[in-house]
Every structure is written in C-alpha cells, then in structure tokens.
Design a protein around this nucleic acid. Structure first.
Lengths: 192, 192
DNA sequence: AATTAATTAGTACCAGGTACCAAGAATAGT
DNA sequence: ACTATTCTTGGTACCTGGTACTAATTAATT
C-alpha cells in the first residue's frame, strides 16, 4: 500500500499492472494505492485509454467467456475448420498470451495437447468418446501470435478403439505430433 | 420483442430465462421486452432475488476468471501441496463442472494432462522448461466433484533432459499415468 | 361493492463514473 | 531567480443503472 511519491510514468506503468491483475479496482481504490487524488487516476486512465471499471468488467465478462470457449469449451479446443466424421478433421488454434509461459513466451504444452486431443475425439462418430492412451511429441516451441493448425486422421479402428494421429503445424512447420488411442463408449457408462 | 400481456408468473419465468442467456440486459431493456414499467421489472427481480446488472457482471467476470485460472493459469494447473525442487512434487486439482463433457460428466483428458505436465515442469530446477515427449495413459474416467492428486518424480536426468513420471489418483485409485521427457532450456532461447 | 393483488409513478439517494474548468504545486528551462 | 510548462488537485454538472421507499392507480377476485 505505502508508496513514496512516484513519477507520473512510473505510477502509470504500475497502474496498468495493477489493473491487469485486478480489473475490479475502482478509481477510489487506485487513488488510495498510489496516494494521489481521484482526478489524477482518472487523468491517468484517460491518457492510458483504460476504460472505467464497469466497461472493464463487461470486457472481462465477455472476453473470458470467449477465452473459456477456446480452452475449456464444451466442444473443441480451437476452431473446427474441416470435419469428415469417422475419418479426419482440421482445427485452428490462435495462440494468445494467456497460453504462454511468461518468461519464455512459449506455449504451454497442454494447450497443444488439448487442441489435438479434443480434435481426435471430435472426429470419432460416436456419442461419447474418451482417450485411453496418448503419445505426444513437441517438435518445436510455439510462440504467442502464431496459429496452430491441427490435422487429425483415424489410422485404425478395432471395435470401439480408434487410433488417431494428430499433426499440428505452424506455417507448414510441424510443431507437434500425437497419437491418441481413443474409445467410443457404449451407451451406458453413466457417472456414479 | 412483442408480447401480449403475460401473467406475472409467466413473465417472471421468462425473465429468468432471458437473463440466463444474456446477463447484460438492463432493467430498461427488460421493461421494453416485456412492455411493463421499470418498477415492475425491479419488483420481479426483487422477488426472484436476481441481483442488478453490475452485480451480475461482476459475478460473470469473477467466475470466468477463476475458471480460467484453473486451466490457463500462469503457473500450475492445480494446487501445489508439496514440492522438492529437483526431485518430486504433488498437486491437487479439484474437478469442476467446466472440465467435464456435458453428456458423460467425464473429465476431458487434457485437464489431467495439463495438471501432470505442469507439475512435471514445475519440479525441474531451471528457469525455463519445456516438454519434448510424453506418453500418457488414462486409466479410468474421472468425474465432477472428485479431486485429482498428482505425484511427480524425476526418474532420470541426462544433461538438460529429465524423465519425469507423474501418477494421478483419485482416492488411492490410479486414474492417470504419464511419462514426460522435459528439457531445461539454456538461458537464451528468446522468442523471435 | 369492497377487498386484495399487481402495476405504475414519483422521490430521494447511491456508486462509479465522464467532461469540463480553474487553481495550486512541482519541475524544468533559461 | 524567474518564468514556462507540466502535473496534480478541487470542484461542479451530469450520466447510468441501480436501491429503497411511498403513494396512487389499475385489474382481478370474491
């Protein structure tokens, strides 16, 4: 809380950080944090083009909903661009900052896995599908701003078991290869 | 938009539905939709215990933020409960509804993967770590409400390569086993 | 017709702002 | 040291989207 009088630029720099990690802060909160008047905070926001609390909350509410879709969405991680049910599928996942490690800017592996896994599951022509085994290989790091194109193909089918191979690339460069053994569940595998 | 004068209960029933699919509606919006006065809408919300717009937005924003944290959080997926850097680690991930497939209530595989992978990376004593290869096996479905306990152990180390084995269980029952080959990155693998 | 329920109108008040103006304090330029 | 400029603060009027309350009006019931 305590803070010796900062320069304007330093205060504004910190203000951005504060709001990034907590967009719920009001101008009053901020004025207390930085020990300046409300007007100063408002001038800062004006200069930095940071919208007011309510606008921020609207944005958070809206954007997080869409981000959620990309990660934990009910259906697919990424956007489906092609699908031949029972055969193959293609999805695209644009890399946002939230997916990367702060230090290295490298996409965390589980995002690639999630895109591939959900695509592998999506191309199976069955009501419910789960993954049993997977062997995945991360060929090169993927960075913020890149778009990951994942292609999935069913390689073999034995009963309710499918082998799906997923290849993900960025600009024709392979970044990820995964082989997923997935199972189509029989009707009644009901939760306990 | 147009709507013949509804009974109170019917209006309130529909009001709930409207707000469920669009929490961004103001009382004014609603009063226009139902062609009643603002006061009526407010009485309705009062009776139905529906909070005002701003509260609703706060709730949406907060819940989405926390959901995001569980999946795309900067650090670990799950909560770290034990860590011996360079040796082993344990994390717990409570399963929420968002992680499950709607139909089957089974946790989507990439959440287990994410927990395990991020834990495998976390126990390595290095600034930046990436996953190169992984072999994972999903032993049994995990359901909403369960808590996944993941244990990671470094099995071997060769130069900057580590083999990490992660075992995840729910109530002493193994649900997931993964072997991760991870790399500690040399200082300067800077993004382009 | 009288009673009750539902609706509407109106007022005072609040948080968290925008937009603007003017005055004072701090800093830099010369 | 004095001035010019930038920064900061104070104050006002106004806005949205409400709460909380009172009173009047309208509709439905018995």
């Amino acid at each position: 809380m305590a803070r010796e009088s900062l320069s304007k630029i330093e205060r504004q720099r910190q203000l951005v950080q504060y709001l990034e990690k907590d967009p719920f802060l009001t101008d009053v909160d901020l004025s207390k944090i930085f020990k300046v008047s409300i007007q100063t905070i408002r001038l800062d926001r004006l200069e930095l083009k940071i919208p007011e609390l309510r606008e921020r909350l609207k944005n958070v509410a809206r954007s997080k909903v869409s981000q959620l879709k990309s990660m934990t969405g009910r259906e697919l991680v990424g956007e489906l661009v092609d699908l031949k049910v029972g055969a193959s599928g293609v999805s695209i996942l644009p890399v946002t900052q939230e997916m990367t490690l702060r230090k290295t800017k490298i996409v965390r592996g589980h995002h690639l896995f999630a895109q591939a896994n959900s695509l592998a599951v999506a191309i199976i022509d069955a009501e419910a599908v789960v993954t049993g085994l997977a062997r995945v290989s991360f060929k090169r790091p993927v960075y913020c701003g890149e778009k990951i194109l994942a292609k999935a193909v069913i390689k073999t089918k034995k009963g309710n078991k499918y082998m799906v191979k997923v290849t993900s690339q960025v600009n024709d460069e392979i970044v990820f290869i995964g082989r997923f053994l997935v199972f189509a569940l029989s009707e009644e595998v009901v939760p306990h």
